[in-house]
């Protein structure tokens, strides 16, 4: 009986490993292709042979020679970091108010939040642009950060997360004499950490990859983000797919690092939730 069980566990593990390896390989193919292409000479980007005949690491330095890639890099990281910070903070606070406090008009306001998410963002871009004109935020960092820094999505997400935290926890804190502000920081926020990190990763990635808004809002090169900057390598007179791929490979590195760090927190968050939940 016991041996059967162990055998069962073993074969299940084997099955899990095989499935995951297959999926991982499938996920990796295009990325690998991208890396290989980033080392190809321009003449070979058309070729469907995966390996370059001559390896050209110069493609990577060429990125920096042709555009101020370092500046783009900084801008992207800087803008995404601010956006992520603001979204996480304000969404968590709002999510707390929606999920853990009872007040008049709560559900109505929440539904309002929810409904605005259903309106295609494209069409709010023009009024928002008009607003930026009024506020004189065109071609500024603030204009790039602010409109994306308050998210109905984030509020919705963190509210859902905070709903799944057991209500007895706030009650206990309240009995201990904690204010709502203390409860929020000391009890709810630590428990909502997996949710916060998830939201953080989503927001960072979304902001990091966003193209249309910066494209319209920004004029000076100093404020270009990576997605706009990389368009150069796909523009009519400078189309160099190999260099574009090199620039792309470099641009995803921070996201991979972020995810690697983020997922460690996931694990601890998950354990935390498991113990206290």
């Amino acid at each position: 009986m016991a041996a059967d069980n162990i055998k069962g566990v073993k074969s299940a593990r084997f099955f899990i490993h095989v499935t995951l390896i297959v999926l991982a390989v499938l996920s990796l193919i295009p990325f690998t292709w991208m890396i290989l292409m980033s080392f190809k000479p321009l003449a070979e980007v058309e070729s469907y042979k995966p390996l370059p005949t001559v390896w050209k690491p110069e493609n990577y330095t060429s990125v920096f020679e042709q555009v101020p890639y370092g500046r783009y890099y900084f801008n992207s990281l800087f803008i995404s970091a601010w956006t992520t910070f603001l979204i996480c903070l304000t969404s968590a606070m709002a999510g707390y108010a929606f999920a853990r406090l009872k007040w008049k008009g709560r559900d109505l306001l929440f539904q309002l939040y929810l409904t605005t998410m259903m309106i295609p963002g494209l069409v709010t871009m023009v009024p928002n642009f008009g607003l930026m004109v009024r506020l004189q935020l065109l071609d500024t960092y603030l204009g790039l950060i602010l409109p994306g820094a308050f998210s109905a999505f984030g509020t919705f997400m963190l509210r859902q997360f905070m709903l799944s935290i057991h209500p007895s926890l706030d009650e206990a804190a309240e009995i201990d004499g904690a204010t709502k502000w203390q409860t929020f920081w000391e009890v709810i926020m630590p428990l909502a950490r997996p949710g916060l990190i998830t939201l953080g990763i989503f927001t960072f990635m979304g902001s990091y990859g966003s193209l249309l808004w910066p494209l319209i809002l920004v004029k000076s090169q100093d404020l270009y983000t990576l997605p706009i900057g990389m368009l150069y390598f796909d523009s009519m007179y400078a189309r160099q797919t190999n260099v574009l791929m090199a620039a792309s490979v470099m641009s995803v590195v921070p996201l991979i690092v972020l995810f690697l760090i983020g997922q460690r927190f996931f694990v601890s968050g998950i354990m935390l939730g498991g113990v206290k939940g």
Binding site: L42, V45, Y237, A238, R239, Q240, T241
Partner: peptide, 9 residues
């Protein structure tokens, strides 16, 4: 195959 991947122009 050729237009999507370009080169100059």
């Amino acid at each position: 195959a050729l237009t999507s991947q370009g080169g100059w122009g």
